[in-house]
Write a protein that binds this DNA or RNA. Structure first.
Lengths: 242, 242
DNA sequence: TTCATAAATTGGAGCGGCCCAATTTTATAC
DNA sequence: GTATAAAATTGGGCCGCTCCAATTTATGAA
């Protein structure tokens, strides 16, 4: 992917771990690694630091660096920590065919909440749309999105039926790659029962998120209601002080 | 809390942001900051990097560093990104009084799943316990936990009625500060209806987690069923390549 | 052998420098 | 004026070094 030193080291170390080279669960010390890779200790530290953030390894001062045993036991869903987003690409991996149906596509004024979240004046307009998403033709998610028209003037129902983020990236040269997510759950409402084929006692998972452009501009406010069986979010959390 | 340079810089910068010193949403460049704080640019980079990870600021190469506008708008729950854990302390902040009732406390053999997750042999024993947690005397969470006896030989129902992690830290000198969480939702089962006063259509939020000691040893496998109204998880996600 | 102490190991923090890439600003030419 | 090119700005990556703190290992006295 990249020719960055620390990236290559991460890739290499992962491979070594997968290959079972560190059967005692212990990695060489940073100074040795620096020498054997012929890079500075700083780069090793960066690589190991990122891997620790991802939960692949544990570092302990004075003691050493260790492989997270669960990283080996595959099936423990280690591949997508913090990544189950409502984005087309995120769902491809499973080999299922994604589909989108646009239920609504309008232009409206933002209400107070939306003004706050997207930093808009009451007079500004936003696109308001609702999409139903499928996996292998089974509906699993209702998505309600709001995007300021000034940020994507040419947005259309046609684009919404494909991938908005891809459009933004390829046509507008902007990138959406950060999001602030709030995750919760609710009993299914009428819409959920109807569109997601839920019965009364079956809930929906809620992912409310604000998506940002790379310069920090809030780009979209999105509420995703997921069929509870498709609702799963993984994350590795460091409770450390830092 | 700490006398670390980058920590103090973070604290200081946060204060400056809160005080509205950067009304144009733009922070000084790294080199200037380094000079005005009389520290190296490396330390500034570290501080800004961490703040970016937390979603407080956005960095853009060639352009500058900007405040996340949502960080200002308080109420947008920015204080606890990635932290709504089932730990005593996490719930204190809201000013509500936490309570615990131990429903079960046994020693059993781990089943296959548990053996995998905690890396145990079938012959080894684990503590098995179930706790009901309260906030202001209202039950909101059912917690089912498993801890290998070899990791906490002296564990008791008494300890479980208080804080297990505090005990581990103060008495065993170990620290539990990392966890791998899987978040999902389910219709409420009989237990949930009874203990959490849920009606048939009201769901529970599920947080399944493996808690680790600082050296990477899996310490506890825990399943937390939360009353859906108390179920909320916030996180700031960077979809970047990295 | 046991146990306290000293030494070596190992990751953490910080410095200050170098060059580069993306972006913005300024200068220049038409 | 406007478009183009050059220069300055700004964050990214990497190096290599110093010192420190936590831990482990080796040492040596009782």
């Amino acid at each position: 992917m990249a020719d960055l030193v620390y990236q290559k080291i991460i890739t290499s170390l992962k491979k070594s771990i997968d290959d079972g080279e560190y059967s005692d669960m212990r990695l060489p010390d940073e100074r040795s690694l620096a020498e054997s890779y012929s890079v500075s200790r700083s780069s090793i530290k960066r690589a190991l630091g990122l891997m620790a953030d991802q939960g692949i390894i544990f570092k302990k001062r004075g003691s050493g660096t260790f492989v997270n045993p669960l990283y080996l036991k595959q099936g423990s869903s280690f591949s997508y920590s913090g990544k189950n987003l409502g984005i087309t690409d995120s769902f491809n991996a499973n080999g299922q065919k994604p589909g989108v149906k646009v239920l609504k596509f309008d232009v409206v004024h933002p209400d107070k909440d939306l003004q706050d979240n997207l930093f808009l004046k009451p007079s500004e307009f936003v696109y308001s749309f609702e999409r139903l998403r499928f996996l292998d033709d089974v509906p699993f998610m209702i998505e309600t999105g709001y995007i300021p028209i000034k940020l994507a003037p040419e947005l259309s129902e046609q684009i919404a039926s494909e991938s908005i983020f891809n459009y933004v990236e390829s046509e507008l040269g902007k990138e959406v790659n950060k999001t602030y997510l709030t995750i919760s759950a609710q009993p299914s409402d009428e819409e959920g029962k109807k569109l997601l084929n839920l019965s009364a006692n079956e809930p929906v998972g809620l992912m409310e998120g604000i998506f940002f452009l790379d310069d920090g501009t809030p780009f979209e406010f999105s509420t995703m209601k997921l069929h509870y069986k498709y609702f799963k979010y993984d994350s590795f959390v460091d409770l450390g002080n830092k």
